[in-house]
Design a protein around this nucleic acid. Structure first.
Lengths: 172, 172
DNA sequence: CTTTTTACGTCAACCATGTTGACTTATTTC
DNA sequence: GAAATAAGTCAACATGGTTGACGTAAAAAG
């Protein structure tokens, strides 16, 4: 009887483990976002611009409203960075011909280039971590992280069944 | 031959999977930090105060310098929130008797109370995700997240061998 | 066809939290 | 005694969020 709490809870939901989860998220996010900032600073842009460029790149022809839903910021706040990105030729705005109230946002070639430069570090960081941990750990990583996200946005990350079926232990 | 890239790379390090990793981190962190902000707003504090309270709670008698290393912000920036927290009775400062230059920071009872209120949501969120994903997924989550963190801080999260030994596949 | 709603934009003021730079005070270490 | 360390302070500034009010064009609803 070394650890009463863990005996009582087979999923190890001890305070300590939960706190480590909190902290790992903090450290991971801190380090994850740290690197692109140097590149951004050189061209007088900030982290907010990065987020916009990223999600426009990921969702070509996205509307302003939909972008706001992803970022969960106000339109006034978005406006500041978005208009800058349009003015400086990173993003194109076109009117939706089906609904002419909507403006569709797309990265220009210049925008795509910047996006790649910015996320290169992040992709490498993730790739390194994935490789070190192994495919099975990646699957667990995805499942837990998905569970942390608000239900609304969880759909974005359907659990992908691996190409080569992996036997799962526990409730499979 | 449906997916050439995944054939060539057994660890599924495809662009798409990496990007999903990037996005999941963004969404998880966004939602994770979202909830405590409401509580903080009521008592005229911000996220920065939360971070300080959290890490002082986790590291009683921590020095200012060590706290700065965790947060990776400037002392001027920390000073603003820290002095506020001391003034309002959330944190106690005592002089280290071994090295009287150092000031040791500890949560007061009031500070502990607030810390609990603030992290309650986050702990529940993590616990929910852990429970839904299962112990094995949690292990993978930890391994990957740890790999994302800068080497300097990885030591904080030694891989814990589970109470009940779990057989690992791959390089074990 | 008029009204209402939606999508988008804009001006203005404000706040939180980060930065750099310069300088001070104790205290400890060399 | 000099140098390094721990902490604090003042000032100016940048970024990126907020609320509130208001305007315009287009679509949807009545």
């Amino acid at each position: 009887m070394v650890d009463v709490k863990s005996m009582a809870n087979p999923l190890f939901l001890r305070e300590e483990e939960l706190r480590q989860g909190i902290e790992m998220l903090f450290f991971a996010y801190r380090d994850f976002t740290g690197e692109p900032d140097a590149i951004l600073a050189e061209i007088d842009l900030g982290r907010a611009h990065h987020r916009v460029i990223y999600f426009v790149g990921r969702n070509p022809r996205i509307t302003v409203t939909d972008l706001l839903k992803i970022l969960k910021i106000t339109k006034q706040s978005l406006s500041r960075v978005l208009s800058q990105l349009v003015n400086e030729g990173y993003i194109d705005q076109t009117t939706d011909q089906g609904d002419r109230r909507k403006k569709l946002l797309t990265l220009t070639e210049k925008g795509v280039d910047l996006e790649h430069r910015l996320t290169e570090n992040q992709r490498k960081r993730i790739a390194r971590a994935y490789k070190a941990a192994g495919a099975e750990a990646v699957q667990g990583f995805r499942e837990v992280l998905r569970g942390i996200i608000d239900p609304n946005d969880q759909e974005r990350f359907e659990i992908v069944t691996p190409t080569m079926p992996v036997q799962r232990r526990g409730k499979g």
